[in-house]
Amino acid sequence: MTSKYQWNNIFLSIMVIALFIFPFVTDSRTWTILLTQIFIFSILAMSYDILLGYTGIVSFGHAMFFGMGAYTTAVMLDRIEPTIGVFVLSIATGMLITGIISFIVGLLTLRLKSHFFAMLTLALSGLFLVLAEKWRSVTSGNDGFTFRAPEFFKDRMMFYLVVLVCMVVVYFVLRRFVQSPLGHVLVAVRENEQRTKSLGYNTLHYKVIASVVAGVVASLAGSLYAISLRFVNTSVLTMDITLDALLMTIIGGVGTLIGPIIGAGVIELSQHFLSGLAKDYPIFERWIIFFGILYILVVIFFPSGIVGTIRQAFHKRKKQSVGKEEQSNSEEL
């Protein structure tokens, strides 16, 4: 019999193969760009899921790690040379910097209770935004700057494939991470921190590890985002990025990893179609209002998100069928 786990893998393999084939069967530039954006935001949302979904940490400063990755790649490609080597080096440098900063930030802030932590991350994120605005010699402030991407990425399809590979690799690495003994301790921290401590786990260590992993992955998303635009400005450090990640994670389903990918797809596609409708119906120029409504409805009626709700329905059905089977067995007896 095929287990639930195997079904999951079969479904994922089909999806990944379909996405790999996609750019070879269509020449729609719009769809290639749109899907690339979805993959990038999927990576960001998965990183946020490690914090929110698995460890129960609400951070309002996740954009700072995304922004650091974006700026590191943009600055290095601009100042050194736009080659694949520099691109790879810039990703590694971005990850190293965010790793160090998220470690320090985590160590200083994660001792605090959740709401104080959330406020402090918001303040720190604001601090990095101001720093980027003022440090004009490097960042060009609010105006930002354009830069040349490596020749290899001139072909949008190649970039699409690279980003898709990154998303798949990040998904499998993070899945192994959350299914490891350490990953299970993260879930324990989310469930009951005091009890986790009483079992002999130093919960601060685990929260810092989650923060570093999430930060490093967000940095990768930032680097890819900068390449996709060939432009960077301070918008990569704004609260909007964190809210996007939060929305994608909640709509897709927290603590599922696959949920944030679906959430990123839903948000990016709705954004695309709603802004498209604005040509005929001016109300859709304010598509953000619809997002607000969608967010409220999801939180009220589907707090487990798309994946969580499907899983619950599946479990309920399974339970009912087991119940019916038991009933018919007892009737036969």
Binding site: R176, S180, P181, L182, T196, Y201, I209
Partner: peptide, 21 residues
């Protein structure tokens, strides 16, 4: 899972992050 987490702590398998549980 509740009990396994306690056993895991006792066995000092606290920071293993790349092997499946």
């Amino acid at each position: 899972e509740n009990v396994r987490l306690a056993v895991q702590s006792k066995e000092k398998i606290r920071y293993q992050m790349m092997r499946h549980f």
